[in-house]
Design a binder for these strands. Structure first.
Length: 436
RNA sequence: GGAGGCGUGGCUGAGUGGUUUAAAGUACUUGUUUCGAAAACAAGAGUGUGGGAAACCGCACCGUGAGUUCAAAUCUCACCGCCUCCGCCA
């Protein structure tokens, strides 16, 4: 959510931002409603002042005849307030509807574009893996090795589910373990920041296993995956399944105030993510690229406003460090206005080279939301001079399990159909060199 | 799932319808004192919102939402959360 004062003073910027994001909003209507809101608010407050003043007199007064008369008068004022408040309520309902529908404004360095075709490659790293045979896709390798079983999962749970088995499971937990060690090691974090040319406060990440259920009310404040059909809903319990750990990490501090010296607060949340994938029927149906259920390690950072841009650069540097450590070729993408998330001011994605498909596929995302989510969540910081303002929030993938596994399977595949285990992960797999 | 209790500012905690502008303590900020600190003493200070250049003024906020009343932290109802006990359970 944006600040109504900011909207009033910068309506051209807000309108232009929405147009770039292809979101329809009616700012003129909002401002007209807001004018009306302020007028009635003032009237209600004036009437209330009168009631407060007279009621105090009534409590103090001993003259019972006068009392009866004043009470009678106040009864009329009360009815007047009631009528005005009802009107006010109607206006606020309409007002909020528009406020919630206004997207965050894209940063100046965000490329403009209609959809993902407008995304720009910022940089690439690593050479595309070279094979002296024709590389296969992950689902074929996975099936032959008995480590991915989508057929049984299809019968048991339906499409877009899978059984991951054997060494692939050990590989998953090895990756997670490696990443958690990295995120809780100040020296490693400092090295990553230094290499990226960032001078930032190195608070290590706090590992979290968050709830996978969330109240729709809290989810609305995160402003993420907003269409109801994107989520698994449990109306009997007023709950929904999260689409990312971000949903329950970001809402951890709603209605809370940080002290300036606590920030940045960084979390690394490990959870299963659930997505209905409505409207993607027929897309990426093979294997584990696009699943209803996948595990993910996600970063969520609360920072001072002036540091949030650096913070996003840091998160991207961490993502690149992970891929470099695994020696997976990738490209970094600046996501354009037509493709970026509703609450984002700047979105950076990373696409990892998938030789089986012969293309880069999205494996990481990094969202800078500025104060947009924090305003909805009412998450603030008390500065050292006592002033209170909204924090800035960043979230970013460390590893999305299905997709990073595909990256390893396809890039590390051997002519005989086995998969070489990246050296850094072998210590988590009993020293094993190959999955075969 | 059943029974009981509780929810007040950063924290502790008083307040059961009307000079309550939410007591007091603590933590916090500033000052006095000191070579410096501690201690002591003094003063200041909640959040949001509307108006104002500012000083300041108004309104709202005691888990959330409705209601009763001239007047609600206080009474009523619903919901949420926490605690204790019982039941069930990895």
């Amino acid at each position: 959510m944006l600040d109504i004062k900011f909207i009033r003073e910068n309506k051209e910027i807000v309108q232009a931002g929405a147009v770039k994001k292809h979101v329809d909003i009616d700012i003129e209507k909002l401002i007209a409603l807001d004018d009306e809101r302020l007028v009635i608010l003032k009237e209600v407050e004036q009437l209330r002042t009168e009631i407060n003043r007279v009621s105090n007199d009534i409590g103090r007064d001993q003259d019972s005849a006068l009392k009866v008369q004043l009470i009678e008068e106040m009864r009329i004022v009360k009815d007047e307030i009631k009528a005005k408040e009802e009107k006010l309520k109607e206006i606020i309902v309409e007002w909020q509807k528009i406020m919630l529908a206004i997207p965050n404004i894209p940063s100046v360095d965000t490329p403009e574009g209609p959809d993902e075709s407008g995304n720009q490659v910022i940089r690439t790293w690593g050479e595309k893996t070279v094979f002296d045979f024709t590389p296969k896709e992950h689902f074929e390798l996975g099936k032959d090795l008995g480590i991915i079983d989508t057929e049984t999962a299809g019968e048991v749970a339906g499409s877009r589910f899978a059984y991951l088995k054997g060494d692939l499971v050990l590989l998953q937990f090895g990756i997670i373990q490696m990443c958690l060690e990295m995120l809780t090691n100040k020296e490693t974090l400092k090295k990553i920041a230094d290499d990226a040319g960032l001078t930032i406060n190195i608070n290590s990440f706090i590992p979290v296993i968050p709830p996978v259920f969330i109240r729709p009310n809290a989810q609305l404040k995160m402003a993420r995956l907003m269409k109801p059909e994107d989520h698994y809903m449990f109306p009997n319990d007023d709950l929904m399944l999260i689409g990312s750990a971000e949903h329950t990490l970001g809402s951890m501090h709603m209605d809370k105030i940080f002290e300036e010296n606590e920030l940045p607060v960084r979390y690394a949340g490990y959870s299963t993510a659930f997505r209905r994938e409505a409207g993607t029927a027929g897309k990426d149906t093979n294997g584990i690229l696009r699943q209803h259920q996948f595990d993910k390690l996600e970063m969520e950072v609360f920072s001072l406003p002036e540091n949030s841009m650096q913070e996003q650069n840091f998160l991207v540097a961490i993502q690149e460090y992970v891929l470099k450590t695994l020696n997976l070729p990738y490209q970094v993408i600046s996501v354009c206005t037509g493709d970026m998330g509703f609450p984002d001011s700047r979105q950076i994605d990373i696409e990892t080279w998938m030789p089986g498909q012969n293309k880069y596929r999205e494996t990481h995302s990094s969202d800078s939301t500025g104060g947009f989510q924090a305003r909805r969540l009412n998450t603030r910081v008390r500065r050292s001079d006592g002033k209170i303002e909204h924090v800035h929030m960043n979230d970013a993938t460390v590893v999305a399990i299905g997709r990073v596994l595909i990256g390893i399977i396809e890039n590390y595949q051997q002519a005989d159909g086995s998969i070489k285990i990246p050296e850094v992960l072998r210590k988590y797999m009993g020293g094993k060199e190959f999955i075969k």
